[in-house]
Design a protein around this nucleic acid. Structure first.
Length: 439
RNA sequence: CGGGGUAUAGCGCAGCCUGGUAGCGCGGCAGUUUUGGGUACUGCAGGUCCGCGGUUCGAAUCCGCGUGCCCCGACCA
């Protein structure tokens, strides 16, 4: 993409509405724009990041055996009356009526609908286990939206729902999601720690929150230093095998958010030198809730003995749009965003330091053509701006690699490659630069 | 939902107290200059001063009522 042809409304000054760093940087980098309190338009740069995060989530859900579908944003109120949650949910639920005065709601979650889909066609234990998920926009009319996309009213969420014949089977499904979450966040360059959690209004008795450690996080967390260095399973992990050792390993050491923190237990179990007290952002939560919805909504299957029984359910959320903010909270410096490569909007920023000079123009065009032809995502700054402005923009939007082409380097047949994460630089020939990204 | 702010050009802000035809910086456009860390200069464009009502010869400014947005708290992926 040529920057001169792109839509990247960079802001030099920080809008006064933005308080936390990810919100400020997202506005400054032209990633998004607020349309109403807690409701955002995703501009091209931000949208690319959102899509990359979504795709990683999708790949890891699929790998763990979950099956993607897509449910609507609008749901009938009657469905929610069946589970009793229409009245229980309160003003956070956005209620709408159509031209026929039918009561609808903009879904804050989809337990009722997925249960209805399930019960309409699954009759036998032989169809289980089943885990269905979708990635869809949700709306919760928060009393006080804030922190940009970290706590918007409209947000993109992955929610998966598992159906099992009994509790033991449901725990196997739970473990699959547990491991899938470890992999999902690690792939995004994040250290996300599973912590025991309250089950909240959804109910149930087994739940973990996945918390990204970031000093600017919204809640305090306490954990054993040991959990920070536990290994994340690689892509060869066998989801049909026994995942218990992995889950045990990750859940045996102390790790809790301030809401459920037990000071006495913490001090008893964690030696002083291993105590980590910092802040974190919740990016995912997994629940086992048993028969809560299947009983009220009659989601039954016939067991091997022919008798009907309610299925055991679990739900598994990941805040996809929130992750964009969470990653920035965890990955930034004074100059701007520092994207992990897996979620970066572009991999390489190609900077023409003397636009209009025939030798730099020619070298850049050639590099741009070669890299693009090999599938490398390049953002080519071919604007008329001064070098300093181009450096500042590239740093701000956080592209992992900056390939700088100027008259000084070209005189020696070299271009300069800067790594955004640590500022390290090296000089290499244009051919070697291409080979670096497309071997 | 309680408490506190705020609303003037795309963004950041001044002007309001003490009413008199709206300004600064950044950004945009045209040009000159410059060319390896947000360059300098010149010119130009850009505003129903959040909305409605009131006071007044005259309201961005004073008064009343709305609305949006932000912050603190309670709440939440």
């Amino acid at each position: 993409m040529r920057l001169s042809r792109f839509f990247l409304p960079i802001l030099k000054e920080t809008p006064s509405e933005a308080e936390i760093v990810s919100h400020r940087l997202m506005l400054r980098a032209g990633m998004m724009r607020q349309e109403a309190a807690g409701i955002y338009a995703w501009l091209p740069l931000g949208f690319r990041v959102l899509k990359k995060i979504e795709q990683i989530v999708r790949e890891e859900q699929d790998r763990a055996g979950a099956i993607e579908l897509l449910m609507p944003t609008l749901q009938l109120a009657d469905l929610w009356r069946e589970s009793g949650r229409y009245d229980a949910y309160g003003p956070e639920m956005l209620r709408i009526s159509d031209r026929h005065k039918r009561e609808l709601l903009y879904g804050p979650t989809n337990e009722e609908m997925i249960t209805e889909i399930f019960r309409s066609s699954v009759r036998s234990y032989k169809s289980l286990p089943l885990n269905l998920y979708h990635i869809q926009w949700k709306f919760r009319d928060e009393q006080r939206p804030r922190f940009g996309v970290m706590r918007g009213r409209e947000f993109l969420m992955k929610d998966a729902y598992s159906f099992d014949v009994d509790e033991a089977a449901a725990r196997l499904s739970y473990n699959k999601m547990f491991v899938a979450y470890l992999r999902t966040f690690a792939r995004m360059g994040l250290k996300a720690i599973p912590m025991r959690a309250e089950t909240g209004p959804i109910g149930g008795d087994l739940s973990h929150e996945f918390i990204v450690l970031a000093e600017t996080g919204e809640s305090g967390v306490f954990c054993d230093r040991g959990v920070l260095d536990l290994p994340v399973p690689d892509e060869s992990v066998d989801y049909d095998g026994d995942l218990t050792p992995i889950v045990k390993q990750w859940t045996s050491a102390y790790a809790a958010t301030e809401d459920v923190h037990d000071t006495a237990r913490y001090e008893r179990e964690v030696p002083a030198e291993r105590r980590v007290e910092t802040r974190g952002i919740e990016v995912g939560q997994i629940f086992y809730f048993g028969t809560k919805y299947s009983e009220s909504m009659r989601a039954m299957v016939a067991g091997a003995d022919g008798t009907e029984r309610p299925i055991h359910g679990g739900s598994y959320g990941i805040g996809v749009s929130r992750l964009v903010g969470a990653i920035i909270e965890a990955c930034h410096d004074d100059a701007g965003i520092v994207w992990p490569e897996a979620v970066a909007p572009y991999r390489v920023a190609l900077l023409n330091l003397k636009q209009g000079a025939s030798e730099t123009d020619a070298a850049c065009e050639s590099l741009y053509r070669d890299l693009t032809a090999k599938g490398v995502e390049v953002l080519y700054d071919d604007t008329e701006q001064r070098p300093g402005a181009k450096f500042a923009t590239a740093d701000l939007i956080g592209i992992p690699w900056q390939l700088m082409v100027g008259p000084k380097g070209l005189a020696e047949g070299k271009v300069e490659l800067k790594r955004r994460a640590d500022g390290s630089r090296e000089f290499l020939s244009p051919q070697d630069a291409v080979a670096r990204f497309a071997p």
